[in-house]
Simulated assay, not measured.
Amino acid sequence: MAAAVARSGLRRMFSISEFATPNARMFSIPAFAPQNPPTPPPKADPSPNLFVSGLSKRTTTDGLREAFAKFGEVVQARVVTDRVTGFSKGFGFVRYATVEDAAKGVEGMDGKFLDGWVIFAEYARPRPPMGEPTSQPQQSWGTPSGSWGSHSR
């Protein structure tokens, strides 16, 4: 008997009949409302510096330089690597001699395969000056109410 009452209580609790009216909004709790998606950062102005993402762990600086040298004079190429493992972090930078060569490099390599991976090439955005806040908003979860490790005795 108690099990039957418990089952019917659960059915009532999880019933959606009260939400079945056409004007009722399901899940209208503001805390669970979706936030506006973040706006993507603006495209960088054309410059001789390119940011290349989607690189394979096997891609080397020389391989990156050779791939982009087909489209103009490469002054510098660098694959950013992990300090501990020495493997690629999946992105790098290429600097061309002119903005025109950089435009050809973006057009020629964006969305193409390099070492078996599709890579993306775009103009690099300048690094913000030290001490200046970034344009990306930081997520704030409020101030902590206490410390995990502190115990009052």
Results as ranks from 00 to 15, higher is better:
147 S>Q: 10
129 P>K: 14
8 S>M: 12
36 N>K: 12
137 P>R: 05
9 G>I: 12
15 S>P: 10
112 K>I: 14
149 G>L: 13
100 E>C: 05
152 S>C: 04
102 A>P: 12
8 S>C: 04
64 L>A: 04
28 S>F: 09
137 P>K: 00
55 L>V: 02
127 R>C: 10
145 S>L: 08
76 Q>K: 15
116 G>Y: 02
71 F>R: 00
74 V>K: 14
117 W>G: 09
37 P>S: 13
80 V>N: 02
44 A>T: 00
53 S>Q: 05
136 Q>I: 13
61 T>R: 05
12 R>W: 10
114 L>M: 09
27 F>K: 11
70 K>G: 04
93 F>A: 00
125 R>G: 07
136 Q>T: 08
26 M>I: 07
93 F>K: 04
82 D>L: 06
67 A>T: 14
3 A>G: 04
37 P>V: 03
98 T>M: 01
119 I>R: 08
82 D>F: 10
76 Q>G: 05
58 R>D: 11
60 T>M: 02
34 P>C: 00
150 S>N: 02
108 G>A: 10
106 V>C: 13
33 A>M: 02
16 I>W: 01
41 P>N: 07
84 V>W: 10
8 S>Q: 14
25 R>H: 12
126 P>M: 07
41 P>G: 09
56 S>P: 01
73 E>Y: 08
22 P>W: 06
53 S>P: 01
82 D>N: 14
94 V>W: 03
146 G>L: 03
79 V>G: 08
74 V>F: 14
122 E>R: 15
45 D>K: 14
11 R>P: 08
5 V>H: 09
13 M>G: 05
130 M>H: 10
148 W>P: 01
149 G>V: 07
28 S>R: 13
128 P>I: 00
71 F>Q: 03
89 K>W: 09
123 Y>G: 11
7 R>H: 06
127 R>Q: 15
38 P>V: 06
88 S>W: 13
131 G>F: 06
66 E>C: 05
100 E>T: 10
30 P>T: 00
150 S>I: 08
74 V>W: 01
29 I>E: 15
139 Q>C: 05
98 T>Y: 09
